[in-house]
């Protein structure tokens, strides 16, 4: 359950974070305009926002969002996707992704931009074929940090009252029942899955990293 939540929240963070980062990296105006907002929002811990997001989103879940009211009293995955929780996951993941992407766009080598210009490439083509591939290693780095943050946030969020599923819930529940064996096992699982996420993204990003580090 935690996994599905994290993947959903993280995907949303990536879908919004990468374009925002690209925009902020490429345009001075966008950077000036958005950086204050990002810098103010970034240090706000996602956990700190959980009560607020519950106020905003109530206990609404995805099944309600899609108008599937009849699912509400059945056992269904969508019932467990609380909007508030997804929101804080998004919040936790989006900033490292934005910052990584900005860093990537800004570290494009000047010579490659000049080469593209001389070779007659327009802005769009330069962006697609030069800036994005150069930025890819940093984008992956941002994604890696982002998913780590998401994973930390979800565990904490699931430990708060109002949840009745997820591995964070399991840790708290087993603690209350004094089943420390289950609790410890859960912690190990959390660590293991966190590492798996990180490694998975790393191997995805490997190719782009290798290309950049080997460039002479």
């Amino acid at each position: 359950m935690s996994l599905v939540r994290v993947i959903l929240g993280f995907s949303l963070a990536a879908i919004f974070g990468i374009p925002i980062g690209l925009l902020m990296g490429a345009s001075v105006h966008a950077r000036k305009f958005l950086s204050l907002m990002v810098e103010m929002a970034r240090p706000l811990s996602a956990i700190a926002l959980l009560p607020l997001s519950i106020i905003i989103f109530k206990a609404r879940t995805f099944s309600q969002l899609f108008g599937l009211e009849y699912l509400r009293y059945q056992k269904n995955l969508l019932n467990e996707m609380q909007l508030g929780m997804i929101f804080i996951l998004f919040w936790g993941g989006v900033f490292p992704i934005i910052l990584g992407t900005i860093q990537g766009v800004r570290s494009v080598r000047k010579m490659h931009l000049e080469a593209a210009r001389i070779l007659g490439a327009g802005k769009l083509s330069t962006f697609r074929h030069v800036i994005i591939p150069s930025a890819l290693p940093d984008i992956f780095h941002g994604l890696k940090l982002g998913i780590g943050r998401c994973w930390m946030v979800i565990i904490a969020a699931e430990m708060l009252p109002g949840t009745n599923s997820g591995i964070g819930y399991l840790i708290r529940y087993s603690y209350q029942l004094s089943r420390y064996d289950i609790m410890l096992a859960s912690i190990v699982v959390v660590a293991f899955i966190g590492a798996l996420f990180s490694k998975g993204l790393e191997s995805l990003g490997e190719r782009s990293l290798v290309l950049r580090s080997k460039e002479r």
Partner: peptide, 16 residues
Amino acid sequence: PVIGYVFQQGALFPWM
């Protein structure tokens, strides 16, 4: 007019 430019080094795109 088309202008070509050969840099000192390293101007090939490493990802292509």
